[in-house]
Computed example of a mutant assay.
Amino acid sequence: MHQSERAVFDLRRGLPVLIRAADGDRVAYPVERGSALLDALEPAEDAALALVLRRPRLAALGLPADDDARLPARLRGPIARDRLAAWATGDGRPADDAFGPLEPAGSADRAALALMRRARLIPAAITGPVTPELEALAERGPLLRVEATEAADCADQAADRVRRVSEAPVPLADAPDSRFVLFREADGLREHIAVVIGQPESWPDPVPVRLHSACLTGDLFGSLRCDCGEQLRNAVATIARLGGGVLLYLDQEGRGIGLANKLRAYTLQDAGHDTVDADGLLGFHHDERRFASAASMLESVGVKRCRLLTNNPSKIEALTAHGIEVHAREAVYGRLTEQNRRYLSAKAERSGHLLDDVLDAES
């Protein structure tokens, strides 16, 4: 995984990477960055550069596809690349003469998208053939080379493996007898915290558990666009009241798309899209989170059977699939506000969250 981990950091810095694949090598570049190195991608023939997009983004553009796909680009030069980036993230369909016919994504293209997702960049890539200039760069060292099979697996494998790193008592206002246990993912990019409330030997059976995805805007700043901060504090208080248990604070901002993309999605929501469609316009599925690491964290702190505090049936399914018995479910709500009503309604109607009680109470 070492080369893939390096590739993630290079892409975040705005550097291209060379992806080796049995069906053709490609150089991949994040659409949200600009660099003079990309000039070496300029080929002589048309349609050698391509914009690679995920299926949700293609559907949002009115280009239905069964899988991720490649749009050969007919425009070249710095201005064209800026337009490519805009078309990968904007709210409109590009001009008909901008691209050639839709093509299936190759192995290198799919690997590029996996790397972008792991890097929490816009999940879209500009890819092109390996020119002699780029090959020379790669031989001298600056251009990283990575195998497509390794890159395609990097996001899933790294996110699923965590290591227990450190811990300390951290008294909380609603749960003074609390301990924070920090876990780090395999590639070191993300860290998660298990908040152990009360003494494990005194926990009820099943153990009260909450999986809480980080929300900087709601948890820390009290944003009215969501109910996350109140859910977090209510969950801590509920676990303490029930006799103790565990709250996992997971680095999965914006249902796994990261803070930068979450703010982009907010802008699209302000333009009239709901939370699901906004994520789709950026190229994300309605929920990009994974919970294998959560199951590993629970096992590490001694939980194999839980009473899950959630409104999301998908979390029950995920923990069950990874060997944690979910014996019961308990709802955990925040306040319904004028600003978060549309967001919560979309979660209920389109993502299956169990929010009838809170939505009906204010109707």
Rank of each mutant, 00 (worst) to 15 (best):
A112H: 00
R210Y: 02
L18D: 02
D270H: 11
I193E: 06
P78E: 09
E185H: 08
R225H: 08
V332K: 02
G244M: 03
P43T: 15
L242Y: 00
A194L: 07
P206F: 00
G100V: 08
E147W: 04
T238K: 02
S363I: 13
A111M: 10
S107I: 07
I122N: 10
A48K: 09
P142N: 05
R190F: 13
R264S: 13
R6V: 14
S107R: 11
K347A: 05
E42V: 05
L51K: 02
G188N: 09
L18C: 09
V303Y: 01
R350S: 12
E45V: 13
S166I: 12
I19V: 14
R76E: 10
P171I: 12
V27A: 03
L344S: 01
M1I: 12
C228Q: 05
L263Q: 11
V358S: 08
P104G: 12
A125G: 06
D279S: 14
E135H: 10
A47C: 14
D46E: 15
L248F: 03
R184D: 08
L281H: 10
Y266I: 07
L63M: 11
E185T: 15
G243Q: 07
H212I: 06
G141Y: 00
G222Q: 09
P142D: 04
A271I: 09
E325Q: 14
A80F: 12
N340A: 12
S35M: 13
H327I: 14
A136I: 11
N340L: 12
A318H: 13
E349M: 08
R164L: 14
L102D: 01
R264T: 04
K262S: 07
L224Q: 15
A95W: 12
A240W: 00
E5M: 08
D219N: 05
V146S: 02
T217W: 09
P129S: 10
V207N: 01
V276K: 08
T267F: 12
R140E: 15
D277Y: 00
Q3H: 14
S107P: 04
S178D: 03
V181H: 02
A148R: 12
L115M: 07
A28H: 01
R184G: 03
G258E: 01
R76C: 05
D23A: 10
A321K: 15
D270P: 02
A361V: 06
A7M: 07
R210L: 03
G100R: 04
A50S: 12
V207P: 00
A111E: 10
S296W: 02
D160W: 02
L143N: 03
P169L: 11
G106I: 00
N312R: 05
D46C: 06
F221T: 09
P208F: 01
V162F: 05
G229R: 04
L319Y: 05
A240V: 00
R163C: 07
V209G: 03
G283F: 05
